[in-house]
């Protein structure tokens, strides 16, 4: 009799604690799903609103013509699209190799104090407000090297912003490559250099591309450093040593203006900027995600 009482008591206890745990489990599931929904909803709302406000500005002229003074109907943001693409291209050429090189150094070669110093510096640059980067490039490059506002100065500022992003993501991704793969390659009599180029980098490829795309997107949206370096331009310009238009500057100029038409154009240009960056991301992923299992 006593024994059975004990058992039923124990079972009763287990029963309530199980119910409690199920309840807690459900509450947390709901909370997690809710926060995911909120995050996505805010993004979706943002995108929806930009499309809603920006779409009316879009027409062929918007993509092919230069901006016109207020009062003249029509005009577009073509110089800004081309300027952004040119500066991003130069910034990518400068920033991605340096960033990747830094990441490779930190993982494959760097150790001790020097590597720590580099890692610290990279973090410091990553945390630098972009306007400071603009001021730095303005005082050094614009004033003393080129002598005037120029697209190249803008590209350098964007490259400085890209380097730490590429370097830190590259470092994280290369660290994820298991040492057993490096050892497998070395044990085949493959040199260190070949091992890094042909085994480590391809294994980390997806992550490296993600880091590069993030850096491109970040640089593509920067406004402050460009105001002090590329300045902006109402005309088409393919000379990197002259002031150059960029979408973020164009958005800023339209947005601060007092005219309703300009505000619409600012929304339109925002939509174009999102489109440009999305296209670049997709192109980068497409170009680097071909199957590596093709017969050679």
């Amino acid at each position: 009799m006593e024994a059975s009482t004990v058992i039923s008591l124990t079972l009763g206890k287990t029963d309530t604690s199980l119910k409690r745990r199920k309840l807690v489990d459900q509450i947390f599931t709901i909370l997690v799903v809710l926060s995911a929904l909120i995050g996505v909803a805010i993004l979706a709302l943002l995108l929806f609103y930009i499309i809603l406000r920006g779409a009316p500005a879009l027409n062929v002229a918007f993509f092919t013509e230069r901006p016109l003074p207020y009062g003249e109907p029509g005009g577009g943001v073509a110089p800004a699209i081309l300027g952004t693409l040119q500066m991003l291209a130069v910034a990518a050429l400068l920033g991605i190799p340096i960033g990747l090189g830094t990441g490779i150094y930190l993982v494959e070669f760097g150790h001790g104090r020097f590597a720590e110093a580099i890692r610290f510096t990279v973090d410091l640059i990553a945390g630098l407000p972009s306007i400071s980067v603009g001021v730095f490039v303005w005082s050094l490059i614009v004033r003393h090297v080129i002598g005037n506002f120029a697209g190249l100065a803008g590209a350098i500022a964007l490259a400085i912003i890209m380097v730490p992003i590429v370097a830190r993501t590259a470092e994280e991704m290369l660290r994820l490559v298991p040492d057993t793969l490096r050892e497998a390659s070395l044990a085949l009599g493959v040199s260190r250099r070949r091992t890094i180029l042909n085994v480590v980098l391809p294994t980390a490829r997806t992550g490296l591309v993600t880091g590069t795309v993030l850096a491109l997107a970040r640089a593509g949206g920067e406004t402050a450093p460009l105001l002090l370096t590329a300045l902006g331009n109402q005309f088409f310009n393919f000379d990197l040593l002259q002031p150059m238009a960029a979408l973020p500057i164009q958005i800023y100029n339209y947005a601060v203006g007092p005219y309703e038409d300009w505000h619409t154009k600012a929304w339109g240009a925002s939509l174009v900027l999102i489109g440009v960056i999305a296209t670049l991301s997709l192109l980068t992923r497409w170009a680097t995600s071909r199957s590596s299992f093709k017969a050679r």
Partner: peptide, 29 residues
């Protein structure tokens, strides 16, 4: 290491290479 090869405890084929490329990895690299 080219003259004295090594096989490890945990199988470690190169994951981004095909079976074919894994075999010739040492020569191709």
């Amino acid at each position: 290491r080219r003259l004295i090869g090594m096989v490890f405890q945990k199988p470690n084929p190169f994951p981004m290479m095909s079976v074919y490329d894994n075999v010739i990895a040492g020569l191709k690299l």
